[in-house]
Write a protein that binds this DNA or RNA. Structure first.
Lengths: 185, 185
DNA sequence: CTATTCTGGTTAGCCTCCTAACTATCCGCC
DNA sequence: GGCGGATAGTTAGGAGGCTAACCAGAATAG
């Protein structure tokens, strides 16, 4: 999510002033929105840099985690590309490319599904699992380091507020947020 | 920031269990981290979709906002690509491509700098400004809609906690977070 | 049992983003 | 005044993301 808007977040007074010209501008909403995107982006870049030092991308890491997690919780050792795409929030076409890359690196294996000849199964290789176990401890430490400034109470608060926002984006099923905004006029 | 980890955030009990195997895993830190990335991603996608309906990308929008904002606050009507790259948090190489696209669409104009022949100046065209004024009201409404579930108090809290996290990622100047993590072992 | 429709994976083409290298220009220093 | 280092913009090459279109196989309708 690089390049969200501007790197230096505007001061609140600037937002108040801009709101005079744009009556639709809600200063506090804008401020928290910009902070959210900026903070998410920063956190994302930190872990992305860490993963890059282990020669793996965010996308590849997500796929490996999905496979490994599924395996560990007894869901079977393999998943179809469509299932992986659904779990990682990416299109099937993108998943093809990700699995290509991972397969080239020997971290993952593609095999035809014996029951349905349209389907493939993707499974993590021992090498992929080893790579993952190599990355994870640092990865966890990094998340802990990033969140260290927050007390347990503050963390609970954040999760609660995030959940509120996630319900917002998830709500109104087929109706997109744009439509909802348009309808509110 | 698409594909951050997994679409369905793990339940807290799962994190507690995983922490038994990985002593470095801080369950509450992991939980808030995942929620942060997920929420940021959702919010990002919402506005991205809205901007796409106006035939503009996040990157292009950021550039236009930087130019327009700079102009409005009396900083002059034009900025150099390097300056734009700095403000939007993108590399100079990326900015070349973004300005290319915007120039093709007639929203922006490139001109040589009269004082320094290495430099270019990028300025927003009337058409670009018109496009922006066309987008902004909906854009502001969208941010307000997304943040509507939060009270003013909750918004203040969020901004305060985000600021804490931003200080964390910005701190330790040259030293990267990875190194800090490594040093903490 | 055939025809239509649906579904899974891939391909093609585009955009954004990156790093690394290159070119042109400016600047400071001897 | 000229030479080396810094700086601005671009180019080249790669990866990830998307949509749209395609093809093979499966499911369903009649």
């Amino acid at each position: 999510m690089p390049l969200l808007m501007i790197k230096d977040l505007p001061r609140y007074e600037c937002l108040l002033e801009a709101a005079k010209e744009f009556p639709d501008l809600d200063p506090s909403a804008t401020e928290v929105f910009l902070h959210l995107l900026r903070t998410g982006d920063e956190a994302f870049r930190v872990v992305e840099a860490h993963l890059a030092s282990h020669d793996i991308t965010q996308g590849g890491f997500g796929v490996l985690m999905a496979l490994w997690g599924n395996c560990r919780r007894g869901g079977g050792a393999a998943l179809s590309p469509a299932e992986l795409a659904g779990r990682t929030g990416v299109t099937r076409a993108t998943m093809t490319g990700l699995v290509d890359t991972l397969e080239r690196a020997g971290l993952v294996l593609r095999a035809p599904d014996p029951h349905d000849r349209r389907m493939m199964t993707v499974s993590i290789t021992p090498r992929g699992e080893k790579r993952l176990r190599n990355i994870l401890p640092d990865h966890f430490r990094q998340m802990a380091w990033l969140m260290a400034p927050l007390s347990e109470n503050e963390r609970r608060t954040l999760v609660r507020l995030f959940s509120k926002l996630l319900r917002r984006t998830a709500e109104d099923g087929g109706r997109s947020a744009s439509e909802a905004v348009a309808a509110a006029r």
